Simulated assay, not measured.
Amino acid sequence: MAASLLLCLLLLSLLSFASPLSSDTILDAAEILSDSGFISMALTLELVSQTLTIQSPSLTIFAPTDAAFSHSGQPSLSLLQFHFCPLPLPLESLKSLSTGTKIPTLLPGQSLILTSSSLDDRISLNNVKITTGSPIYDDGALIIFGIEKFLDPNFGVPAPVGSPHSTPRCRLSPINGTMGFPGVSWFEAASESLRSNGYSIMASFLDLQLEGFKDQIMMTIFAPVDQSMANPIKNVSIFLRHVVPCKLLWNDLVNFDDGTVLPTYSNGFTITITRSDNVLMLNGVPVFFANMYFSDSLVVHGLHEVLAAEDRAQKVEESSPGIGSQGEESLLENDEF
């Protein structure tokens, strides 16, 4: 294993003096990916090529299937980096590595782990198998393999003792007439993530509205991108309608049935889950950036649009004087949560 790691370091040092992959190479690879049925990864490769491929003159890419994209949503840039290795790794090279060998990625400080053995019929990384018997694309500098699903950057990392799981049962908990949010310090990383991904207006709302709230609960924020909130927004209800009082990762959302209603911190405003051509929609708005940020108590998903009030939500708001009213309780007590 030490020899494998040394070889990787030597290759990286040599490759640092070479030219980056050309745009023609990326376009050719994307076209072949699309023709091979990896349409989502082909489109993604074209979108991120200027960001990721300039970091390395050679790459091995592990491409998840379209079904994986449909199930998990569009990956974050950091997750994509975890699927890019800055070394050309032909199939025979992968087969020659011993179980447990670490393979570098473009995600700083993160490596893939070879989990298959010489006796296995297919190579696996982080317990995810390569689906194709040969590379989808291989020109010597860029090699692409198909894999069953997205690779987990937390593979092999023991979960913290007492770490909370997702809590898809949503309830609002008014305290002294005021809705309780987690403490401000819990959200510094979330605000930074929002700002770095083009959601600075929602990040500012997050910072401002949390002042004075001390109760620690779980919550999910559906953040509209800045372009959809171009004008300064002073109405706090715009922020509150995008906050759900429970932690919902992408896997939780996709497992909800059509018609499932999520309560929010905006009095009477609810979010209805539906699907259009297998795309999950929230009040008619698709999730663009799933799991942008998540921690033990908070999940942030990115949207391209502001969530608009549906007729049902507007009627509930008009007939409900406050949290705890009959209309609100009928939503919160639904056993789907």
Rank of each mutant, 00 (worst) to 15 (best):
Q314D: 12
S96E: 08
N197K: 14
I32P: 00
S124F: 05
L262M: 08
V300H: 01
L27M: 09
V299I: 04
K214C: 06
D152C: 09
A308Q: 14
E328P: 00
L208H: 08
D138W: 02
E211I: 14
L59F: 13
A309H: 06
T132L: 05
A30F: 02
E188I: 10
P263V: 10
Q81I: 07
L331D: 02
N235T: 11
G140Q: 07
L94W: 03
D207L: 09
N283Q: 11
S76W: 04
D66Y: 01
S196Q: 13
T131C: 14
T274G: 04
M41F: 15
K247Q: 06
P104C: 14
L47S: 12
F205Y: 07
F62D: 00
S34T: 09
F17D: 07
S22F: 14
V287Q: 00
F82H: 02
E318A: 15
Q216S: 10
K95F: 00
Q50I: 07
L12R: 06
T25S: 13
G268D: 06
I147K: 00
K247C: 05
D66G: 00
T44L: 13
Y293W: 08
G212Y: 10
S111E: 13
Q326P: 01
L33V: 05
V285P: 01
E333N: 06
S72E: 02
M41H: 05
S58D: 08
D335N: 12
Q81M: 15
V306H: 05
H242W: 13
C170I: 03
M1K: 11
